[in-house]
Design a protein around this nucleic acid. Sequence first.
DNA 1: CTGAAAGCGCTTACAG
DNA 2: CTGAAAGCGCTTACAG
Lengths: 365, 365
Amino acid sequence: MKKLFPEVPAKSAAKREATIVDVAEAAGVSKSTVSRVLSQPLKVSPNTRAQVLEVMDRLGYRVNVAARSLRTAKTSLAGLLVPAISNDVFGRIAEVLEEDLRQDGIGLLIMSSGWSASGQRLAIESFIARRVDALVVSLVDEHDSDVNSMLGSFGRPVVLLDREIRGLRADVVLTEQGNAIRAALEHLAQLGHRSVGLATISTTVRPGREAVSAFEAHADALGLQRVVEMVVPYERVGAWAGVDTWAGWEVGQRMIDAGATAILSCVPNSVTGGVLDFLRSRGLNIPEDISLIAFDESELASVKPPRLTVIGRSLDDIGHSASRMVVTRLANPGLAPRAATIKMRLHIQDSTAPPALSLSTVAQR
Amino acid sequence: MKKLFPEVPAKSAAKREATIVDVAEAAGVSKSTVSRVLSQPLKVSPNTRAQVLEVMDRLGYRVNVAARSLRTAKTSLAGLLVPAISNDVFGRIAEVLEEDLRQDGIGLLIMSSGWSASGQRLAIESFIARRVDALVVSLVDEHDSDVNSMLGSFGRPVVLLDREIRGLRADVVLTEQGNAIRAALEHLAQLGHRSVGLATISTTVRPGREAVSAFEAHADALGLQRVVEMVVPYERVGAWAGVDTWAGWEVGQRMIDAGATAILSCVPNSVTGGVLDFLRSRGLNIPEDISLIAFDESELASVKPPRLTVIGRSLDDIGHSASRMVVTRLANPGLAPRAATIKMRLHIQDSTAPPALSLSTVAQR
DNA sequence: CTGAAAGCGCTTACAG
DNA sequence: CTGAAAGCGCTTACAG
């Protein structure tokens, strides 16, 4: 046999990885049989199978994923696109998803869009170039036509995280905020608040729209005055270190200016952190001077005084749902698109209390 | 030609991905030439190259990574192992590393060990089975012999994040804490503290040992009494939701019991969160009743009152250094192992102040 | 500078 | 149930 790689003669002799041919020789069967033990074990007689498995174990055989991929046109790789893997929410979802998929022999490539449309385009392109078998994506903008057409022609499973894209055949894991926002507003109304403000993420994505519409509907129903509805666009969440804090300060400023006695801060916790920072800088205490409800549990929400009242959800459930959708659809591509819904709940802690007599009084003193 | 996949006839006709053969035909050259344009462009005449590139673009050609991998025995995939991708520190490092490697055409598989030795073993096994080209790892235990022998026989680049493993040929990105801990202790000494306590991570890893030895050396040199040296093992950081808070409570309890007037909390911020939680529950104010210095910036450290004095570092630099090491060593495997050092710095904010007259007085009142 | 050919390690339809 | 054979899409030494 002619040597194809004469430049690495040592390696081919010494530490070459075992292949199915090696296993076949050692087991006295054909490589077809060895291959079947790997991919269609039931088509091999129990005896032969056991023997082959024993030899594989002894030789430390590991399937060459590249070779298998080339043959099957499957990479056993999934892609996860999130705005930022360093974000507490997406970090946890990624962790759970990776763990689940690993059980099914699927590796997870994770990319961050950096909260930008261009970033999300590059990432999706990159995933497609790598021919991942499935995609789980949290888009920064549902209306990015480049991304939507890429996803549309992807031809493999796509799972959207809390996004709605018309005309795209995809499974989706939704978060249902409406009830929790209603509960939060009821809680505030009961405490005596009359003027409430909302900060939310971009309405170019479903959760932003849902927060706004739920806020409007339920505040009105409860007779609460909606003094602020502020959208914090994704560019202001994470383009560079510190912007999120700045965005939070602006939220705080506008809430105070408008006379809100309670803030629904339905934005990433890094932004809510900025809100807290601003309120502190103004000498305003939570909850005595102003009430605040945060979104998603986090270190921010759970520890420092006051512990924050939050609208929370199980991030683990989101990860598990996404993995289930990937695996199910990979096994059964014909299935109709499905939606799973994760419910948010209000967790009352220490950052909400009856309003100060008048916030303007407070701000002026 | 006999059909190998008669079950999917439509696909092979309609949406088959272009291959180098397709490009070769369309460009009127051999597939060897097309391949060279991809892998050794300088060996192709400029004219031919330009023409081939044009055709590739027109056909939307994308190299089949699996085929290339099979031929070259390289996957252009790197693996990152961290205790938990949901941790703020590792999340940011991962984000930067992924972005950097993507520039070099390397995809990043990220796995979390869940802060456990068994988890780290499974992950490393999984990476090796996938034949990643390089590994970047933050181990939970430097003395795990299974892992060490796997890494030792890996035969491809390994970058250790702040770990020391004797006998392992690997590059390493170190964090230098000594000076920052000295600065922190000097700061506390100047404020008038005499009794200080340290909480750190497991001494089965380098940073734990470094923190302890720096603490001991510098506290002694400054004449500070070391009333507590507490190791928080990794199992208590993240095995399940809430353990970290519990661990933090215990840290707080022991600090108070021992009469520390200042705490150096060199543990993950989720644990430091528990410390804050405990102190609050005891009605102790920071910094009036007790001073606290945290480790690594985080939402926890940057926002809520009081903003925490921290020992911090550039996580971005860690990510960049790691990516540089991966890329450099992939290009030049013969290089001697290298070490990059990231320095920590003390950032004084609002959680440190002169000690209360007597902490025991405070605790009793 | 270019092309023909071999081969990377698998999977699977086909024929026993 | 098993084996021989073809072929997935690349890369590269070899020979022009």
